[in-house]
């Protein structure tokens, strides 16, 4: 029988890992809202940020915090590269969505092979950015592993920031207007070009942060750039109907919790299958998403 403490610990673990899935989902949502495309190399940003962090800290000897910041900044810039080196050239040559799909799929393979060529396929130790992996923090009277605690804190801070940006600033208004209709936004005098840049940058950045948060669990390994994790971001985004950022976060949380409890009650072998099943069921049953408050308002 599952004790209350065990239950809470599992819940915390599931929810906090789920929050990082939610961040990956956000990466999907931002891009979908602004350019109506899915970047299948979404997850690569997570792997890139982890390896950049590793490179800066372990190889170049920079401090951990500086390495992390630099890694995130580079991943943000990579978002712009994605736009100007991939999306725009394809669009200009009359490539449609399918071409973007294939190009980004190949991009995933590209990053994976690059990382494996440079660092080898074996996982490496993740520098203790969030303290020791075995460390516990007391949280409402329950001992919680420090990494989970950090996940919750970082995502909470990031979400608050995003909420303020999206709801309270001019930039957020521009983003939301562009998401609803490009033409109208243009008529309103919104700089569509700038908002697209923002969307690309935000999309890779949040996934980069998710990567760093997952580092203590997955280590510095190419697994972080693979399909099995990548699909979780899509599952989270799909629950939010691909358009609702809060829905994506909530979707990630639900997914994380489901995964954790399924490991407990069923078998860890099929843990990943849950996210696939969620995608299939949600898309077939309710393609507009189950946590979608954005499109209903329109």
């Amino acid at each position: 029988m599952l004790g209350l403490t065990d239950f809470i610990q599992n819940l915390v673990a599931g929810v906090s890992v789920g929050l990082t899935y939610g961040l990956m989902g956000l990466g999907v949502v931002f891009l979908w809202q602004s350019i109506n495309r899915i970047n299948f190399a979404n997850i690569s940003s997570a792997m890139l940020s982890v390896y950049l962090f590793f490179l800066f800290h372990t190889w170049l000897g920079l401090s951990m915090l500086l390495s992390a910041v630099l890694a995130i900044v580079l991943v943000a810039v990579y978002g712009l590269g994605l736009r100007y080196l991939l999306y725009e050239p394809i669009t200009k040559r009359g490539g449609a969505r399918l071409e973007f799909v294939v190009a980004t799929l190949m991009l995933t393979v590209f990053w994976l092979t690059l990382i494996i060529a440079m660092f080898g396929g074996m996982p490496r130790r993740f520098p203790p950015l969030f303290g020791d992996a075995t460390q516990f923090v007391r949280f409402f009277g329950v001992g919680v592993r420090a990494i989970y605690f950090y996940m919750i804190v970082v995502v909470a801070v990031l979400m608050t920031l995003l909420h303020v940006i999206l709801r309270k600033t001019l930039m957020g208004k521009m983003l939301r207007a562009t998401a609803q209709s490009k033409e109208t936004a243009q008529l309103m005098g919104i700089n569509v070009n700038l908002t697209a840049n923002l969307a690309f940058v935000m999309s890779t950045t949040v996934v980069g942060v998710a990567g760093l948060l997952l580092g203590p669990i997955y280590f510095v390994s190419p697994v972080l750039g693979g399909g099995a994790i990548g699909i979780k971001g899509f599952a989270a985004a799909v629950m939010g109907g691909l358009v609702d950022p809060y829905g994506a976060i909530l979707g990630g949380v639900v997914l994380g919790a489901l995964e954790n409890f399924s490991t407990l009650f069923i078998s860890s072998a099929y843990r990943d299958v849950i996210s696939f099943a969620v995608i299939a069921v949600v898309l077939v049953w309710k393609p507009t998403g189950i946590f979608n408050w954005t499109s209903k308002k329109e």
Partner: peptide, 21 residues
């Protein structure tokens, strides 16, 4: 039957991964 090609691609990814698993 009901999904746009794009959403369909996600379902088919899920199918492939389930078979692999």
């Amino acid at each position: 039957f009901n999904l746009k090609a794009f959403f369909l691609s996600l379902v088919t990814i899920a199918f492939g991964l389930i078979v692999h698993r």
